[in-house]
Amino acid sequence: MANLRLRNNLRLMRFLSNEMTQAELGERLGVTRQTIAAIEAGKYSPTLETAFRLADIFQKPLEEIFQWDKESA
């Protein structure tokens, strides 16, 4: 089931945001803490809306948070 075609730097982004917790990020996004954990682990690809909201929260371009791995696609 799990594939890693979409990689992300969510863990790094949280670290750079004063070590924001998964729970805090989940609360701001309106998703559960476990969903944030699943995104970070590459077990779930968020919707486009959630991805843009993540970019907005971290004030970074979308492609800096998510990268599409062409090689494994």
């Binding site: 309106g30 559960t32 476990q34 969903t35 699943a38 968020p46 959630t50």
Partner: peptide
């Protein structure tokens, strides 16, 4: 907390 989200 959120009871269900997009992943659910």
């Amino acid at each position: 907390g959120p009871q269900s989200d997009e992943r659910d």
